[in-house]
């Protein structure tokens, strides 16, 4: 399979991924990220994630999982290397071009990142408001996604009156309401009990069946083993394993 845009020709190409054969959603090419001189959060990472692929990023705390997601999301710039996200050279995007890319990416965090003073409906609608979508259309879209996630009866509640699982479902609803091409989830079940963990992960897994690339960072190998998906294991900022879930070592 051909990897990377033409500017990669003549240099070492990213490592092929287990589920190859599909068009790439994300390509990382010899990416390193250093926050302080001499200390690397990521070191020489080359990866490719296909469209509609479901990938787990695993590894211990400090392995570089969150840094990798931030780079894909253009929240950070790599110290070295290239990153192509949905065909765009993410680190080179200016302030005006970054938001349109982000609108094509949904993000879910462990701490939900919901606005406590806004209702569930308003929190989810935020993702639509920023692109200037008409409010009437927004309400219908928000209701549809909340209904899909079983939260339509909670739409006028404030986040702090909801359970942890419900709050995470609101965060997922916000991430999905724009029908993103990539869904990034950083320890999405870190604050949830085992039953809710399965519920939330099932919801996230469903989105990849609709063609969305899903990248989930987790150190919970119970989840990884349950879903038998591609698993990239990071340690000390390096990729130490890239294999289906059953290949990962807890």
């Amino acid at each position: 399979m051909k990897l990377g845009p033409s500017r990669f020709l003549g240099r070492r190409r990213p490592r092929e991924y287990a589920g190859g054969g599909r068009k790439a959603a994300v390509q990382l090419y010899h990416v390193s990220k250093s926050y302080t001189a001499g200390h690397y959060a990521l070191r020489d990472v080359s990866l490719e994630f296909g469209r509609g692929e479901f990938v787990f990023l695993t590894g211990p705390s400090g392995a570089g999982k969150t840094s990798l997601l931030k780079l894909i999301f253009a929240a950070e710039r790599p110290s070295e290397g290239q990153i192509v996200v949905l065909g765009r050279n993410a680190p080179r995007l200016g302030p005006a071009a970054t938001p349109p890319l982000r609108r094509r990416i949904g993000v879910v965090f462990q701490d939900f990142k919901l606005l406590p003073r806004r209702t569930v409906e308003e929190n989810v609608a935020l993702a639509l408001e920023v692109v200037g979508a008409p409010r009437r259309d927004n309400r219908a879209k928000v209701f549809a996604i909340l209904k899909q996630l079983g939260l339509q009866h909670r739409r006028f509640h404030h986040p702090l009156s909801l359970s942890g699982g419900e709050q995470q479902r609101v965060a997922i609803a916000r991430a999905l309401v724009n029908e993103p091409e990539i869904l990034l989830a950083d320890e999405p079940t870190g604050n949830l009990d085992p039953e809710l963990t399965v519920e939330i992960m099932d919801l996230i897994a469903q989105t990849s069946t609709r063609g969305t690339t899903v990248i989930v960072a987790t150190h919970d190998y119970g989840i990884v083993n349950r879903y038998a998906k591609r698993c990239v294991r990071l340690e000390g900022g390096r990729v130490v394993e890239d294999a289906p879930a059953h290949g990962a070592t807890p």
Partner: peptide
Amino acid sequence: RDELEILALVGASRAY
């Protein structure tokens, strides 16, 4: 700051 961080997450432009 928290609100602005979330707005950036969902792709709000600088003008927004």
